[in-house]
Amino acid sequence: MKKFVDVLKYTLLLAFSGLLMAYALRGQDLSKIGQALREANYFWIGLTLVISVLGYFSRAYRWKMQLDATSHRTSFWNVYHAMMVGNLANLVLPRMGEVIRCSVLRRMGGVPVNVSLGTVITERIIDVLVLFGLLGTVLLLEFGKFWNFVAAVVTDRASIMEKRGPLLLGIAAVLLVLLVLLLVLGIRNLERLRRNRYFSRAASFVRGILSGVFSLRKVRNQGAFWFHTFFTWLVYYLMDYLAFFAFAATAALGLTAALSVLAFGAFGMAAPVQGGIGVFHLMVSRTLLVYGLSHEAALAYALVIHASQTLLVALMGGISFVASVMKTGRNVVALPEPAETTA
C-alpha cells in the first residue's frame, strides 16, 4: 500500500509539472521556439556544462569538509558519487535525493545517515540564505523593472489574507493548542518515554542530525569552506550569463539580467517537482519578459538551459550510480533506517 501511495504521489507531481509546462507553452508560436533552438550557438551551452562540472566537484568538496568536521571521514569520491546519485534521484523523486544521497554515503563510506543528513540540512540553510540575499539584491538593482510584478503579488496575497484571515487564524490557534498539549504530555511522561526503545532510537537519530547541523562550527578551514560556497553560486551565475550568448535575443542582456535569472530560476528549481520541470521554465521565462524578450525567445532560453543541465546530471549521476554499485556490489539506493546511531 505504501509503495502504491508513493507511486501515486510522484505520478501526480509529474502530472503537475506537465501541466505547468503546458501552461508555459500555451498560446506560444512553437515554430518560433523551434527556430530559436535551431539557430542557437551551442558552443556557449557546452561551455556552461564544463563550468557546471567544476561546480559539482566544488560542492562535493565542501560537503566533505562538513563531514570531516563530524569525525566521520570518507574519501572525496565516495562523497561525490553519493551527491550525484542524489541529484539524479531528484529528477525522479523530488526532494528525496537529499535522503538518498545520505543513504548511498552510508553504504559506500560508512557515514551514519543522521549525521550526513544534518550536514545536508546545514548546506540547504546556507543555500536558502544566499538565495534570499540574491533576490533582495535583484529587487534593489532592478526595482523599477520588478515593481509591478512584486506589487501584483503583494496585492493578491493581501486580498487572500483579507478573505480567509479568520479561517487561517482559527487553524493556527488549533495547531498551537495541539502543540502545547503535546509538549505538556511529553514533559509529564518524559521518564516513560526515555524507557521506550522507539523514542530512544528517535532521540539518537535526532542527536546525530544535530551533530551534522552544528558541524559547520568545527570545519577546520573556514576560508576554504566559504570559498567553495561562493564558487558554487558563481558557477550558477556564469551558467546563466554565458548562456545569454547562445541566443540572438539574449546576447545583449547584461550581468544584472543574469542575476535576476539566477535568483528566480533557483526558486523554480527548489519547487517540489521532478527536476523543477515546468516551474523553472515559468520562472525564467517570466523573468526574461521583464527585460523585453518575446515569450518564444524566453522559453527557448529556459528550455535549453534546463534540458542541458538535466542531461548533464543524468550522465554524471548515472556514472556515479554505476560506480557506487560496483564498489558495494549491490543497489545502494535505499532509504535509511531510523535506528542507526552515531557510534
Rank of each mutant, 00 (worst) to 15 (best):
D127C: 02
D127P: 03
V128S: 15
L131W: 03
L131H: 04
F132M: 12
F132K: 06
G133Y: 02
G133L: 04
L135K: 00
L135H: 00
L135R: 00
L135C: 06
G136D: 07
G136Y: 00
V138S: 00
L139K: 04
L139S: 05
F143G: 03
K145E: 03
F146A: 03
W147Q: 15
W147K: 11
N148R: 06
A151W: 06
V153Q: 11
V153K: 13
V154F: 11
V154T: 02
V154E: 10
T155V: 00
T155C: 03
R157Y: 10
A158V: 12
A158N: 08
S159W: 06
I160Q: 03
M161A: 15
K163I: 13
K163N: 06
K163L: 13
K163Y: 08
R164W: 14
R164M: 10
G165S: 11
P166Q: 13
P166F: 13
P166G: 10
L167E: 15
I171L: 09
I171R: 01
A173G: 11
V174N: 07
L176G: 04
V177L: 14
L178F: 14
L178S: 05
L178Q: 08
L179W: 13
L179A: 15
L181N: 06
L181D: 05
L182K: 12
L183I: 15
L185E: 01
G186Q: 10
L190V: 08
E191S: 14
R192G: 15
R194Y: 09
N196S: 15
Y198T: 14
F199A: 06
R201D: 04
S204F: 02
S204W: 04
F205W: 01
R207A: 05
I209F: 08
L210M: 09
L210K: 00
S211H: 00
G212Q: 00
G212E: 00
G212S: 13
F214C: 03
F214V: 09
S215L: 02
L216I: 15
R217P: 03
R217S: 12
K218A: 12
K218W: 02
N221S: 15
N221W: 09
N221H: 14
Q222R: 15
G223H: 14
W226K: 08
H228W: 10
T229G: 01
F230P: 10
T232Y: 06
W233H: 07
V235N: 04
Y237P: 04
Y237E: 02
Y237D: 09
L238E: 05
